[in-house]
Design a protein around this nucleic acid. Structure first.
Length: 550
RNA sequence: UGGGGCGUCGUCUAAUGGUAGGACACCUGGUUUUGGUCCAGGCAGUUGGGGUUCGAGUCCCUACGCCCCAGCCA
């Protein structure tokens, strides 16, 4: 690793290592709250934390920050672990829960009270709000602020034993009600919550607030560099205050800019709304920026990791162009995907000079980027389907697909010339009559005559049917968060289902785990909705198309 | 009128007082049995104004702009 081109976090760690601050140790953590599914913004945090640890020969913990029983569920801890693993990060059994430290946190709170740094406050939530002051004006002190030490201890213990109603009392830090940083105006440390916790059940009825819990979790686990997003910058003084007052091991919090993607929303609240109001089919809807959504859509873990490497890390607010994600995706898929033939919008083609009952098999390359992927046999016969878009009766200049009198290559098969256009009574094209040149088997000719267009095709009788789901961005606004109501900018055409697509027969039994490219169309991934009788494919991403742009 | 951050091509991100570079996007051209890939090239940036310096994206002053903070959420 050279000194140049490091990001600001690596430089901080280098400085710490130079000064011996953490004895050259690096230990990070990824601390999700199990209250929703992971999205690609989390993937940045995961990537960062695991990679920093690996780079410096350290470790990274996966820690569930489950301090609020109201919002958290087991379903989410399961999905989060699954997603982290799918992304390619091994937590090596380093899986922890904030709730495992509840007893220890409680004892630390006792210590804080004993040192006269915390007190039990009986102000209601509304009263606390009213006395906090504003951004410009200082707050006023709670009447309970100067309670005797023993009374605080007694009251706090009774809070713990369940004697009081939700919201009736809190434990608060005794800091400074006129502090310019609102977080330092006697912050709540514990609140009373008679609620069932997904792991500790009914054992506790007081739960620690984030600021109290997070620093202690980091401290207990021996974290060195505690990476979090920018909005916690204002919380760092409090993180430091607690640890200093307790005089315990003190990790360094470092803030970085979270990832934003163009044409998408990233907040859990908004994603949840999309799910609950059925704007999408679920957390794993292929249009969602969730890890499970990308997975179902056909994204690869490697493409997401490469994207994160590309994105980098800094403290500027940013909106990454989603085209960059798609570029990482195509780079990976291009090298690895198996090519297959599929016709989305079939147009019947009859090869008039081809024997009626004949069928033959042409040799098709599975992946031109990788010879080891081998070849397969593709059935060819008299009646075929091609893409409707690949024929124009009256083509513009530079249209080098099929048109009356034009000769094109049917990939891996023959040169084909269109002789007749068959229409129905309304003038709609229903069928094409063509001839083939029998001396061009494999798609090449002895005379080296040049054929500009190469089309994909399937044999009608051999083909299998499928529904194909075409996805577009979920929002029409580049930054939906900036709109007064992001729901209003939902793209009503984000999903288009194309029925009765024709696939080459091998796709009937194709393994769903392998990424596949439908020649000339894009990358597709077999959806979980597929059954033995009916195939469903998701378009992961289209191929770059410089023709369509014009 | 409080506090904390941040301003570099269209979008991300480097350059740590010494030639403003890379990626994506976009535009040319070449190769190609995918209008894909690949290859070659091009376009495009330091928020403004002062100052220090032989030399400033970088240091200082100042102005401006953007983001975050008033949950018993994280």
């Amino acid at each position: 690793m050279n000194d140049i081109n490091k990001n600001f976090i690596q430089r901080i760690i280098d400085d710490d290592n130079d000064s011996g601050k953490f004895n050259n140790k690096v230990h990070t953590r990824f601390p999700p709250e199990p209250n929703g599914y992971l999205h690609i913004g989390h993937a940045k945090a995961i990537y960062l934390n695991y990679n920093i640890a690996e780079e410096y020969n350290g470790k990274c913990n996966l820690r569930f920050d489950d301090t609020n029983p109201i919002a958290e569920e087991d379903e989410y801890v399961r999905s989060i672990q699954e997603d982290v693993k799918w992304l390619g990060f091994d937590s090596e059994k380093r899986v922890y829960f904030a709730s495992d430290y509840f007893q220890q946190m409680y004892e630390y709170a006792l210590q804080l009270i004993k040192n006269n740094n915390a007190y039990v406050c009986e102000l209601s939530p509304q009263e606390i709000k009213n006395t906090r002051g504003t951004l410009q004006k200082p707050g006023t002190q709670s009447p309970y602020r100067d309670r005797a030490r023993d009374e605080n201890l007694d009251l706090f213990n009774r809070m713990k034993s369940g004697e009081f109603e939700n919201g009736s009392k809190t434990l608060r830090g005794k800091i400074d009600m006129s502090h310019p940083n609102m977080n330092m105006r006697d912050p709540v440390i514990y609140r009373i919550l008679h609620a069932n916790h997904h792991r500790t059940g009914d054992k506790w009825c007081i739960y620690p607030m984030y600021d109290w819990a997070h620093g202690l979790e980091d401290s207990i686990e021996g974290i060195t560099h505690s990476l979090c997003s920018l909005e916690f910058e204002d919380h760092r003084p409090l993180y430091d205050w607690y640890l200093d007052k307790l005089d315990v091991y003190h990790p360094q919090q470092i803030e970085f800019a979270r990832l934003n993607l163009s044409y998408t929303v990233m907040s859990k609240r908004k994603l949840k709304l999309l799910v609950e109001n059925n704007h999408v089919t679920g957390w794993d809807d292929p249009r969602m920026p969730t890890i499970s959504g990308f997975k179902r859509r056909g994204y690869t873990p490697k493409s997401i990791r490469n994207f994160m490497e590309d994105v980098g890390v800094a403290k500027r607010d940013n909106i990454m162009d989603i085209a960059k994600l798609e570029s990482s995706l195509r780079t990976d898929l291009n090298k690895r995907s198996q090519r297959r033939m599929a016709v989305l919008n079939p147009l019947k083609v009859v090869i008039t000079n081809y024997p009626d009952e004949k069928e033959e098999f042409v040799i098709a390359k599975n992946n031109p980027e990788d010879e080891s992927a081998g070849t397969r046999k593709l059935p060819f016969s008299k009646v075929l389907y091609i893409e409707k878009d690949d024929f124009m009766e009256d083509p513009p200049k530079k249209f080098f697909r099929l048109s009356p009198g034009a000769e094109v290559r049917f990939k891996f098969a023959y040169y084909i010339t269109c002789t007749d256009v068959i229409k129905d009574s309304k003038g709609k094209i229903v069928e094409l009559h063509c001839t083939y040149d029998k001396d061009t088997l494999g798609g090449r000719s002895e005379d080296k005559r040049k054929v500009k267009g190469t089309l994909h095709w399937v044999s009608a009788n051999h083909s299998v049917l499928a529904d194909i789901r075409l996805y577009d961005r979920l929002f029409t606004a580049l930054n939906p968060d900036a709109e007064s109501n992001f729901i209003d900018t939902i793209n009503t055409n984000s999903l288009k289902i194309v029925k009765n697509c024709r696939l080459e027969p091998e796709l009937k039994t194709f393994e769903s785990k392998i990424p596949v490219q439908f020649e000339r169309l894009g990358y597709f991934f077999k959806d979980a909705d597929s059954t033995a009788e009916s195939l469903v494919y998701n378009r992961t991403v289209a191929l770059r198309d410089t023709w369509a742009k014009k």
